[in-house]
Amino acid sequence: MTSEMQADRSAQPESVPRHEDRFIASEELARLVMRTAGSHLQLARDDRPYQWSTTAYCDTYDWAIYRAAVAGQALRLRFREYHRTRPDEAFTSARVWLELKEDTVDMSRKERFEIAGDVVPAFLRGETDLTDASGGLGQKAAELVRAGARPVVVTQYNRLAYAAPDDRIRITADHNLIYLAVPWTTNSDDAVPIRIGPILARETDVVIEMKWLGELPAWAEELHGYLRQRAPADRPSKFVVAMRHLLGEAKS
């Protein structure tokens, strides 16, 4: 990696594996959940309330990441950026987050790097290492890039998030969730920014996520149990839902 590329990124260390559950909830239930979370946790500093999050997810030409995710274990390679209003293009920001997230059946871990948006095509060509490719999640990401990973779907939503110190508990609510296609055809330098769409589907309810390390405190355990009673359990990840819509595999 050149010194210029090194200067263009900052990293957050790989997280400790943590529990993660997702739920789809009505607006009324989501308000109750987030009021409860807000009475015990602080507003998360990295997710400003109701800004737009735009996330471009990558997959290989044989949909290897999607198939692994459906089976319950996969490394997701994605790019995230934040805007005050909903953009109609991806990779418009000078800085974007390159995120590597690995899921198992009920655990997840994540590593993220702040990078310059205009180096994304070079990264996907395998010409620059924006992660530590010598081991861990970075090594797996490098393998996906060599296999031809490129952006295939995009999600956009407004997030409200509360978290304990060091993210030992994190509860989020994603509103106005939209799934979109992205017509990525080349890794040339002029590939970014890229217009996103068409819209594949919209979520009419709210996606609630609970993530935690170790044991939940009593109030959070009670909230988790209440959610499991009131909201459909085993909610797939946004990536899986988006890919099902893209490939025509979504259930009616």
Rank of each mutant, 00 (worst) to 15 (best):
F123E: 07
I208F: 06
D118P: 00
S188R: 15
D234F: 12
L29N: 05
A231T: 08
Y57P: 02
A250H: 04
P198N: 10
V119T: 15
L137S: 06
S188M: 07
V207E: 04
D190N: 15
L75A: 03
A94L: 13
V240C: 03
L160F: 00
V105Y: 11
W97Q: 11
T92C: 11
D62G: 02
A11C: 12
R228P: 00
D118F: 11
A233M: 10
L246G: 03
V192Q: 04
L246F: 09
E221F: 03
D167H: 12
D132E: 15
W52F: 09
H245D: 05
W97P: 00
A173Q: 00
A161H: 00
S237Y: 03
S53N: 12
G38R: 05
A44Y: 01
A191Q: 09
S15P: 03
Y157S: 01
R22P: 03
A90V: 15
M34R: 01
A116S: 13
Q156P: 06
G148S: 02
D205E: 10
Q73C: 13
E102C: 05
E81G: 06
I169Y: 04
R125M: 00
H245Y: 15
R67S: 05
T2N: 14
S15L: 12
R146H: 11
T2F: 12
M107C: 07
A161R: 02
M210F: 14
Q229W: 08
D167M: 06
T55H: 05
R195T: 15
E27S: 10
K238W: 10
